[in-house]
């Protein structure tokens, strides 16, 4: 059963990644092409719930891969990611979105 669950997690990860890639690419494109550039950049701290090194690395990888956010630094104890987000008015919502889209399937993979 655990293999089946992991396969489902991989598919969920891939689908949410592709969807997010397109969605946020268009968001960045709209931002860039708008006549007046109004970005709300921020550096947000994302607490990490997964523990193994490869799972943290995977989380950082996926957050960096989506347009509009880049992982700048992983804390030495691997408990926090520092992301630079291009356009966010509500950092808490951004963090929740990342956790929902990527961390949950990764935690599923890790188990």
């Amino acid at each position: 059963m655990s293999i089946l669950r992991k396969a489902v997690a991989v598919v969920v990860l891939a689908v949410s990644f592709v969807a997010d890639l397109f969605f946020s690419s268009f968001a960045v494109a709209r931002l860039v092409l708008s006549p007046r550039i109004e970005t709300h950049p921020a550096i947000v701290m994302v607490p990490v719930a997964v523990e193994r090194p490869w799972a943290v690395a995977l989380f950082a990888y996926f957050t960096s891969l989506t347009p509009g956010s880049t992982c700048l630094h992983v804390a030495d104890d691997r408990r926090t990611l520092y992301l630079h987000v291009l356009d966010t008015r509500d950092p808490a919502a951004t963090i929740a979105r990342f956790k929902r889209l990527y961390e949950r399937p990764i935690a599923e993979l890790e188990r």
């Binding site: 860039v32 950049p41 347009p67």
Partner: peptide, 26 residues
């Protein structure tokens, strides 16, 4: 093209990086 426009228009290196590396690679 959008990535290149963003490279020119956005105000600091970090935001330019978002535009160039992500949209460019897509």
């Amino acid at each position: 093209l959008v990535a290149a426009i963003g490279l020119v228009r956005l105000p600091d290196p970090f935001q330019r990086m978002h535009s160039a590396t992500k949209a460019g690679t897509l």
